[in-house]
């Protein structure tokens, strides 16, 4: 296994909600609550979960685009979670992000060429004379002709814009890219193209991806490891094959059984979850999943389970799971 690129420890993000005429502190949204993971160089780590579970917040906090409330993100020996804008600037070259909506992530008043040249010139990565060559190469990398350099974003299709957004992330020759739902807003046929493009670029430049998504089929296809998040906490983290073959956390099981099958005759043994995701304004005590968990015991209501490695490369945060083969899931009341 290769070296750890980013070491994320106990990352937390809280958003104060202020109400009333004098802005007195009324409530706190616990968007991210003690998130820890080591991201290995060259891997694709995916984060999945329902809307509002803190997937995107994780991506923003890792890159310090949103300042984490506490916790650390160690990159190249530096805790970048504590850096301010100026301190963060040299690291931005290495750590990039591709956003969800390609229609709004490009400045409508800037040509594609200017948008791509800006990070290169700003970080002094190439002299002005070589910009044209760099642009041509960047556009070719994402499968676009050089002639796009003079175009404006509104003249491009969604897929083309997302290619430009990827080229822009690549412009600084980064090592790590957060793909924040980078294909969710695109047509299915275009999704496959962009996905393949991302995989090719990973191979070519040795990139590491944090892939934030909600489409489990896509995640299964491209990930080395998958993290399942629920209400700001990691429920299960495992190698992709292991997670899809043998999900251990009750939430993971419910999530996977919700994936539609392509075989209409396949036996449908769905684990249906009752109720809604609780509000992150007042998350449940103990295990955050206990309000909807079929296995919930008294212990789950009071004590939050830690993320423990229960099998080779598979960690679960659940009191009911003792090891990969030893769960009390089977003898639970249906």
């Amino acid at each position: 296994m290769s070296a750890t690129l980013l070491s994320i420890r106990d990352l937390r993000k809280e958003f104060p909600v202020r109400l009333g005429a004098f802005g007195e502190r009324a409530a706190t949204v616990h968007a991210l609550d003690g998130f820890s993971v080591d991201i290995v160089e060259g891997e694709t780590l995916s984060l999945v979960g329902e809307s509002g579970c803190g997937k995107s917040t994780t991506g923003y906090c890792v890159l310090n685009i949103q300042r984490p409330t506490s916790g650390s993100v160690i990159y190249a020996g530096t805790d970048i979670a504590k850096l301010d804008d100026d301190g963060m600037r040299p690291f931005r070259r290495d750590l990039q992000i591709v956003f969800q909506d390609p229609y709004s992530t490009l400045n409508p008043r800037m040509t594609i060429g200017d948008a791509l040249a800006e990070p290169i010139l700003f970080h002094g990565l190439a002299p002005k004379a070589e910009i044209r060559d760099r642009l041509r190469q960047l556009l070719a990398d994402v499968g676009l002709s050089e002639r796009f350099a003079n175009r404006y974003p509104h003249e491009l299709s969604g897929g083309q814009r997302q290619r430009v957004a990827i080229a822009r992330a690549l412009a600084c020759r980064p090592r790590f890219i957060v793909c924040d739902e980078a294909i969710s807003a695109l047509d299915v046929s275009v999704q496959a193209q962009i996905l393949n493009l991302l995989l090719d670029l990973q191979e070519k430049y040795g990139l590491t991806y944090l892939f934030i998504a909600h489409d489990l089929a896509v995640v299964r296809h491209i990930s080395d490891r998958v993290g399942v998040m629920y209400l700001g906490r990691m429920a299960e983290l495992a190698r992709a094959e292991a997670l899809f073959a043998r999900p251990l956390h009750p939430y993971t099981r419910a999530l996977l059984s919700a994936v539609p099958s392509t075989d209409p005759r396949a036996a449908r043994n769905r684990q249906r979850l009752q109720g809604e995701v609780p509000s992150p304004l007042s998350p449940p005590s103990g295990c955050r999943f206990h309000t909807r968990c079929p296995l919930a015991r008294d212990r789950c209501r009071s004590e939050a389970p830690a993320l423990r490695e229960v099998a080779e490369g598979q960690s679960v945060a659940c009191h009911a799971v003792a090891s990969a083969t030893e769960t009390n899931w089977e003898n639970s009341p249906a």
């Binding site: 931005r92 990039q96 992000i97 956003f99 709004s104 400045n107 800006e118 990070p119």
Partner: peptide, 26 residues
């Protein structure tokens, strides 16, 4: 708070550049 301004921040651009090249033209 538009995404392209967040994207400019993610590139490490300074506030002055973001204000003059991203915010004001729009």
């Amino acid at each position: 708070n538009r995404p392209y301004v967040t994207a400019a921040r993610a590139l490490g651009l300074t506030n002055r550049i973001i204000l003059t090249r991203y915010v004001l033209p729009n």
